[in-house]
Design a binder for these strands. Structure first.
Lengths: 132, 132
DNA sequence: CTGCATCCTAGATGATACTG
DNA sequence: CAGTATCATCTAGGATGCAG
């Protein structure tokens, strides 16, 4: 097994590296969104569903369950008549906000460059008839 | 919190938010690996292929192209007889190492907790027959 | 050596219907 | 309300073969 620290990993090549696992954790479409929403406090299933909008019940439940499994969020079901379930970020979950925030900041700071690069790249690709 | 854009996004709900784009950028299996490898300096196609190991030519090329398109790496093709192509991280590419590193550090610091939580979760799930 | 095109499978995701 | 179950689909990714 892998030991520990790594800037980006000593042997990222193996799927065992924490980096890989961390990435797999937030790699999907919804995890980040949910963590973001929950970073503002506990919320009910329906609230999350409504806020995310495009998500299907299936993915919402699935993602929430994964987060719960990973100890990132807690799921509190109230044995009431009209079912009520509240999801809340755990302490561990909150620690993820930092790294995720760093990534977000990076994105915000370089979005323009990315779009520019992309635009330029696509532009060059469309110009194979300049002198060739 | 973060200055302008978003802590994790103002409207992450829309695929337009930088967060989503940032995530999409590194969400796939190989991007991170490649950035990691290239963070050590320029390398040839074959070298990368050999180092990553499990990657297929298709994904290697595809990922490399995406990185190039996003301005994260440069692709230098030498018009020699035995084709030689060197990939190198751009300045922008280097800036990604930080955020990625933060995520990696997080992973390294909390991997144990994650596994523990996961184990506990699975354990509980397998115990529906405790008193029933 | 570097890279592209094609075929094919598995998993991810969405839509819908049903239940406690 | 909060899920679960199922079906259909879409696409990422791997394998292979060909080309400059």
């Amino acid at each position: 097994m892998v030991s520990k620290a790594c800037t980006l990993a000593p042997n990222v090549l193996s799927a065992q590296c924490p980096t890989r696992q961390a990435l797999d954790l937030i790699a999907d479409k919804w995890t980040t969104l949910l963590i973001y929403l929950l970073s503002k406090g506990k919320q009910r299933y329906g609230d999350l569903h409504r806020q995310v909008g495009g998500i299907s019940q299936k993915m919402l439940t699935q993602t929430l369950r994964k987060l719960e499994r990973d100890g990132l969020v807690t799921r509190h079901v109230y044995p009431e008549v009209p079912p009520r379930t509240e999801y809340e970020l755990t302490k561990l979950g909150h620690t993820l906000i930092g790294p995720l925030g760093a990534l977000c900041e990076w994105a915000g700071a370089h979005l323009a460059e990315l779009e520019q690069a992309r635009k330029r790249y696509d532009h060059l690709q469309k110009k194979p008839s300049l002198s060739a």
